[in-house]
Design a protein around this nucleic acid. Structure first.
Length: 816
RNA sequence: GCCCGGGUGGCGGAAUUGGUAGACGCAGCGGACUUAAAAUCCGCUUCGAGAAAUCGAGUACAGGUUCAAGUCCUGUUCCGGGCACCA
């Protein structure tokens, strides 16, 4: 064999071997323990970027590791193929989105193969294909029949110049990205899915998901935002209907000094009709984009409506304001303001000179000045009439009881979570399978007429969906009454496609059903890997869809992803790699120069998977250098012929030390990959072992035997990260088998035993010496040895020893 | 603004359950090999003092708990992710 490490030759040979043996194509085998390893599928944007390489390598490492553990591993790949970039490319280059997308997929599939990922390509799923999206349309019509979808008006960003709806991403500093016009909020009818019907289940189940990071579970809990509160009615002077507000702090009710409604609220609309200033203010409120971050960070503005509500307990008049920070989409679109005990209300009251009343006092009796600082903690009620002197819970219950008894309010549970708006005014997406008839209203497309196929031969101009100008698409007979009717031209949010693709991989060719019995074998996903940026939306929508599919009888599984790994971004010069910033590194160039294994190794070694990874050209060099050392360590060894087996009883000290290191390393790497997903430390441990192998200059029979044992272990254990070089070295070591069919090495506990251990000795917590003691030495022996150290005695310096703390096999701390 | 992370040598990072701060690698410095360069190999490498032994300081900042804190607690600060139409 060649002594020169030639990555391209060995990588192409290894890839050919995997292809020819079809080793990554898996069927269902009920006798084997299955492991479904999945990565978030990519949007086919053109070429692979470093973020892709990172996430797919992590996933491939886990998949290959689990296979070496003897599991039956499914590792599929597909394409999240609908989305805005295809339309943007279409406008720019005059290429139909479909054509652009399919050619990107071809390019990227080739790159994935060159990186040596062990995907089962027979299961490839492409979401823009009718065979895929027809089932999503089908499920939507089932949800329609169950009342799980509905249509209502909701807010979009409107570009008044381009006369088109903009995504939040297309709004830059409140202006349209092409027209530069000030964006307006506008309401249009859109379809919604009732994810709120599942809010409690989605929330409660988080407590039983040990395989997810706590941070993601916390984010989802906060996003769902379940709160227990009270709905209260305030009479409004001159109005028949009362104004209803929701509060989680009814204990502060006596502190209400004003109320505020959203700009879209009917009371505001009514007041605007009579007052041009208010009308102007409301119009001004519309001149902003719809993103919550914008609303929350912009200057809090408001205006009195000139009408008053009546405080339900005191009978006082409370002025009504319209304010830009009240959201029509949350709660009732109106809030009661308690400036003494709510930070935002306090600031607003200060600014507009509204009264601030203290109605809660600190429970510890300390004094506060409510004019100086807001007090938001729970405490004891004051200035609250007959409700004075109550703690939070008593006040909450007393006031809630009063409102329920008088029929003016009720205890209620509120969610921050809103129903999922799935309509998009875009072309390149799944057509929403609805037909509008003047007589029958919105009618779902019957199952026999599915899929509603998206025409692919179109010209995209950027001014609205081209579907609107295609009578052959739009004009259709009502499935109910046969009258002339119009097809919906909006398409689904692309999150709909990504909310169930993981299940479809189990049975991508199922022609008669969304899922078949193969899904029961493979789902749920055992290990899901993807970007932390998907911590809420994609992962929550998928959990919702899984339950919708369950309730449709398609599966018994409720939670789609048992274990979740969220990987960090790839940065260069401290910023995310992106075309905009011009700081991208093309993975293909590095593959051409160093080979796929070097790129994979650097990705795994440079940072733990959850953290951001700082790109380093020098670091890539280092990974390449390591692989060259690895290559020559093995090829040098096999030049001496195949070494025999280890005879543990015949080893000298140096041989025993290396063998101990080998088995310590097996234990460490197994734990690092299998449990901790700490790939960087696993690689470091393999490097250390290889350094130790290179230091042992011993051509004796047992010397070569312990080296072979170490090298074989390293070859197997590094193979998930650098599969090609390991494939080649495995056969170089004289093995007939294919490495992918091997088993992970086992720890020989007897090799780990040690006679002596080194302990650290501290005096008052500071390191002052080291002692070697027998590994089974008792506390007194250890103490005596520690006190016998010269430097330790120097620091004790005759002072009285107050305490000696002995931590077995670690340290001794002498407290004087 | 709100929610979730993170901050450790010149750099990426390690320290897994509160117990030796800096594993492993990069860069740098010194040496070997070479006519020379590249490649490779060996040694040193947190900062300060010292010939050395060793000592002092040190994990964003300010406090606290503990025999012992990078790790736990309180407050601050900076950076990143998400905020419902980017994917």
């Amino acid at each position: 064999m060649s002594t020169q490490y030639d990555p391209e030759a060995i990588e192409l040979a290894a890839q050919k071997h995997w292809d020819d043996s079809h080793c990554f194509e898996v069927g269902e085998d009920p006798d084997k323990e299955k492991f479904y390893c999945l990565t978030m599928f990519p949007y086919p944007s053109g070429k692979l970027h470093m973020g892709h390489v990172r996430v797919f390598t992590i996933s491939d490492v886990i998949a290959r590791y689990q296979r070496l553990q003897g599991k039956h591993v499914l590792h599929p790949m597909g394409w999240d193929a609908f989305g805005m970039p295809a339309e943007n490319a279409a406008i720019k280059n005059q290429v139909p989105p479909a054509k652009w997308t399919y050619s990107n997929i071809e390019e990227m599939r080739g790159q994935l193969n060159r990186l040596g990922y062990g995907f089962d390509w027979r299961r490839e799923v492409t979401t823009c294909r009718p065979e895929y999206y027809r089932w999503e349309q089908w499920l939507f019509t089932r949800m329609f029949k169950k009342g799980l979808v509905y249509r209502k008006n909701s807010v979009v960003n409107w570009d008044p110049v381009d006369q088109t709806v903009l995504a939040n991403e297309q709004v830059i500093d409140g202006r349209g990205w092409r027209s530069d016009a000030l964006v307006e909020r506008r309401e249009i009818p859109q379809w919604f899915m009732k994810i709120t019907d599942y809010a409690d289940e989605l929330l409660d189940e988080l407590d039983r998901m040990p395989g997810w990071p706590d941070s993601v579970k916390t984010m989802q809990r906060n996003w769902i935002g379940r709160s227990e509160g009270v709905e209260l009615s305030f009479d409004v002077k001159g109005e028949d209907d009362p104004l209803t507000v929701y509060t989680t702090r009814p204990d502060t009710l006596f502190g209400v000094t004003y109320m505020a409604v959203a700009a879209e609220h009917p009371l505001a609309t009514k007041a605007a009709a009579a007052n041009p200033d208010i009308a102007a203010f409301i119009e001004d409120c519309q001149k902003t984009d719809a993103a919550e971050a914008t609303l929350e960070t912009m200057e809090k503005k408001g205006m009195p409506l000139g009408i008053s509500a009546i405080h339900p307990l005191t009978g006082d008049e409370v002025p009504l304001w319209v304010a830009n920070f009240v959201l029509m989409s949350y709660g009732t679109g109106a809030v009661m303001a308690v400036p003494g005990h709510d930070a935002r209300d306090w600031e607003f009251a200060k600014k507009h000179d509204l009264p601030i009343t203290q109605v809660i006092a600190p429970a510890d009796g300390s004094d506060i000045d409510i004019d100086e600082a807001v007090y938001v903690d729970k405490g004891v009620t004051v200035n609250s009439g007959k409700y004075d002197g109550l703690d939070f819970e008593s006040a909450f219950n007393a006031i809630a009881d009063y409102f329920e008894e008088t029929g003016r309010g009720r205890r209620t549970i509120n969610y921050r979570l809103r129903d999922w708006g799935v309509s998009r005014q875009r072309y390149w997406g799944t057509p929403i399978p609805i037909i509008y008839c003047d007589d029958c209203d919105a009618v779902p497309v019957p199952e026999k007429d599915l899929p509603v196929v998206l025409p692919e031969d179109v010209t995209v101009t950027g001014a609205g969906s081209p579907l609107k100008d295609m009578p052959e698409f739009v004009d259709v007979a009502c499935p109910n009454c046969g009258k002339d009717a119009r097809r919906e031209t909006d398409t689904f949010d692309t999150f709909v496609e990504s909310s169930w693709y993981f299940a479809r991989y189990a049975c991508p060719d199922a022609a008669d059903a969304m899922l078949d019995e193969r899904a029961a074998y493979w789902t749920p996903v055992d290990q899901y890997t993807g970007g932390i940026e998907h911590a809420i939306l994609h992962l929550l929508y998928s959990r919702f869809f899984q339950r919708v599919m369950r309730d449709e009888g398609l599966t018994d599984v409720s939670e789609p992803f048992t274990n979740l790994l969220t990987q960090g971004m790839v940065l260069k010069d401290g910023a995310k790699m992106s075309k905009n910033k011009g700081n991208t590194v093309d993975p293909q160039e590095l593959i051409d120069r160093y080979g796929a294994d070097t790129v994979r190794l650097f990705m795994m070694f440079a940072a733990p998977p959850e953290q951001a990874l700082e790109w380093s050209d020098d670091g890539v060099q280092g990974s390449f250098r390591f692989l060259k050392r690895f290559w020559s360590a093995v090829t040098d060894h096999v030049e001496g012929g195949r070494a025999g087996d280890v005879d543990a009883a015949a080893l000298n000290d140096a041989q025993r030390d290396l063998r101990r290191k080998t088995h310590q390393t097996i234990a460490k790497i197994s734990d690092d990959i299998g449990r901790r997903h700490s790939f960087n430390t696993a690689v470091a441990a393999a490097m250390e072992l290889l350094n130790a192998v290179n230091k042992l200059d011993d051509a004796s029979e047992q010397g070569r035997a312990v080296v072979r044992e170490a090298l074989e272990a390293v070859v197997i254990m590094l193979s998930p990260m650098v599969p090609h070089i390991c494939h080649e070295l495995w056969s170089a070591l004289g093995n007939e088998s294919s490495l992918v069919d091997e088993r992970w090495p086992e720890v020989d506990e007897s090799a780990l035993e040690m006679d002596l251990v080194e302990l650290v000795v501290q005096v008052n917590g500071k390191l002052r010496g080291r002692v070697s003691v027998a590994s089974d030495a008792d506390k007194d022996t250890i103490e005596a040895a520690a006190l016998g150290d010269d430097n330790v005695q120097r620091f004790i310096d005759g002072q009285a020893i107050r305490k000696v703390i002995v931590v077995p096999r670690r340290l001794v701390n002498v407290v004087v």
